[in-house]
Write a protein that binds this DNA or RNA. Sequence first.
DNA 1: TACAGTCGGGG
DNA 2: GTGTACGACTGTA
Length: 774
Amino acid sequence: MDEFTGWLLDVYADPRDGVTLWFLDGGEGARLRLSQAFPITFYISGPPERLRAVWRFLKSQPVSLTLSRTQRRDLFEDDPVDVLAVQVEQPAAQPVLFRRTARDFPDLTYYDADLPLSLRHAAVHGTFPSARCRVIADEDGWMHEIEVLDSPWDLDTLAPPLRILSIEPDVDPSHASPRQLNVRTARGIAYRLVLEPERALLINLRAILRRHDPDLLYTKWGDTWLLPLLLDLSRRCNVPLPLNRDPGLGVARRAERSYFTYGQIIHRGQQIHLFGRWHVDIFNAMLFHDYELDGVMELARVTGLPVQTVARVSPGSGISAMQMVTALREGVLVPWHKQQAEYLKSALELLRADQGGMVYQPLIGLHRDVAEIDFISMYPSIMERFNISPETVGMEGSDADHVPELGIHVDRERPGLVPQTLKPLLDKRLEIKTSLATMPSWDPRRKLFKARASAHKWLLVTCFGYLGYKNARFGRIEAHESVTAYGREALLLAKEAAEDMGLTVLHMYVDGLWVKKEGLNRVSDFQSLLDEITERTGLPIALEGIYNWLAFLPSKVDPRLPVPNRYFGAFQDGSLKTRGIELRRRDTPVFIIQIQMEILRLLADAPDAGRLTDCLPEIVARLRGRLAHLGSYSVPLEHLLVAQKLSRELDEYRVPSPAARAVAQLEAIGKSLRPGQMVQFLYTLGKPGVVAWDLPHPPNPKTLDVARYTELLVRAAVSVLQPLGVDDEMLRKWLFGEYGYTGLAENQLFPLDLVAPRVDRLGVNDGLVGAWGD
DNA sequence: TACAGTCGGGG
DNA sequence: GTGTACGACTGTA
């Protein structure tokens, strides 16, 4: 028997026997492959005669299994339910057996049937990717004991010394033909491998893989281009390529797909998963740019999902995974999730879709010294504090709480499944943020902590969608309604607190409010309000910042109407916050974004926030410069690209939108794009008015539709100058007239706290801002 | 003018 | 195998 301490890298069902676990030995640095017996149980309920039938069916299957009758707890039932327990000896055989059973007995109810193996292992042994473990194994490679030594909730953990090999082509393969691969180790050893001749490429790459034996292949376009290409070449040239570390297994491919979630279409390229080694394609990973590898590792630790999985899924699946582990540990049955795609709504979708969050009508115009106060992780905090969970809502009890507005009760006595899952997450996020607040800027851990905080943020943001959605395993509509009801109440309580202290509430939006009072403009001035709100609501709250100036914009359709989420402002530290304006949209060309940002920067850096109009001569001069650039075709074409996401197949477009015309050009040369993929194009003169990027011949800059880009520029400029009293006509005169900036008329000079004619205000509403008044 | 198509949101 | 918020805004016919 051998004992060692090391990091767990991976757990997967082995088609040969049991489960395979990979460890990084902390002592010698060896990578060890161990096996473990790990039988899997799933449960079936239904009428007795049907259970007898499925019993006979299962007995006839060529799978080693044990059947028994037992009772288990269904979260949605008061009493334990009678179930047939099916224990399958070989974990790799279970998914196949289950699919076959569900196909032949679709009328029965299945539990614990479709759970990722790593979650079952997490529930039984407390394991998670990169966990430090003490392991006892025999000479034949069978593990006899495993003890997890650290916790995913620890802040300071010893990270495994991973060997990382990054591979990327010299150019983006969807836009050009790569000629070589740049291969690098984390220690800085670099190789350049030309793609042809193919045999040489394979032999070189094989040597590199053997020499460095990486734990992680870190690629660009590895899922969608590189690994499929290498696998294909390897087969054709008959040169085996050890992409897997586990030599007995082939790589796992998952097909590309387009699917709907969060109200929009998403395209996922095909995926290549490896065994005994991770493959992460940073361009096929959702939100990767937000939290990078550190965030991926953190997601794997807290969710228990494999690294290769969390690198590619939305964090929402992570919350679902955590709930499943909680259920498994508590002995609660996990219902079979029939839909594979997740039709979830984010918090913001839900608050608009029905009885949702509080949305207020802001006071249009420019305001000074405004404080923004936000509830921290509002909806998760509410779930945790008020014990909101599918099984606690609607339950009367000795310690039941009354949900505001709804007239239903929430049982506070027994911690719910969802709050139980959320509590450590909320605690850890708070701990991370607290540490970051006191961590000096030079501390090397800052990057790691920031990435972790970002990963946690997304986990918490998406968890609300799972609670509310009826297709979620542990979803229940009353639970989600309770959360939004508590949320509205909290915001109203906060508003009352502010008004009781003599502040004006300019705006409220779901989990934040904007307040001001003459003479208050330091952080300490608002401390008593924060304390008061915390006191009244019991929820954590923070001062997002104090704006030197802040503008709430009117609707372009009806200038009398405010838009709840179209605003921008400059905080006292000089940073900007913008919502809803052109620079926030991903279909806005970089050229336009830069200009809008430049204007905002000038306004944010203005020495006197009370005289922002003093910036106008400089702004107009810069805009004229930009226009001259545009007119002389000296703006880089990349900066003029418009990128839009395809919402449908080309032949489903009923109107030839610019994006559709660009795709048609690409189709004509054999490049087809799937729904959910981005198409890039330039606006050009004449018909068809656009030219797709990625055509074989670069577009002629002289064909650019300068007038159209000018239009976009003026529009973006007016959006941000309008609160200073500059309208479209005025700006055009200054930009295209002989004299340039000629000044605002006396009566147009911007006064402090300029406010548009006041329209009626909206209090609590039904989530639909447009539903009030005429 | 009608309506088709795209966008955001969270920190 | 499934399903598609809602309001603001822009573009086409």
